[in-house]
Amino acid sequence: MNCKEYEFLLSIYVDNECSESEKQELEAHLNTCSSCQKRLDQLLLLKGVVRNESIQLKSAEKVKKKVYNKLYLHFFILFAGLVICASLIAVSGGLVQLLLLNSTPVIIKCIFFAGVGLIMVGLVIIMFDIYRNVIRFMKNK
């Protein structure tokens, strides 16, 4: 092997991923070659330089809270979407029936509209909750 080939092996050697035979061969070469020894020193310095750069990042707990908020928001929006779809189908179905059946007694109509009103109130509450969570999430961000 020449120095160029050993240079490739050196990169694997500093990562401790050489086979035993490669390691022995390389170490024997390093004892006799100053340029490869110099290259080894450079590689070790480079590894040290990348490894020793430290960073101040947010604590895991803070980020975890945000992850849970986002997950909660995703699931909540999905759930709210399903509830809204189901409500709209029910309400539109009811309205069609009311319009087609003019002979429906007034009391039934009142109960029906009260039900529609309650569904609307429920939707408003759900929308408010989504809005509140979005605001909270934006603030956390």
Binding site: L57, K58, V63, K64, K66, V67
Partner: peptide, 11 residues
């Protein structure tokens, strides 16, 4: 940006 990507990764 790193924090956003980290959050998305864990989601």
């Amino acid at each position: 940006i790193a924090e956003d990507i980290t959050q998305d990764t864990f989601i």
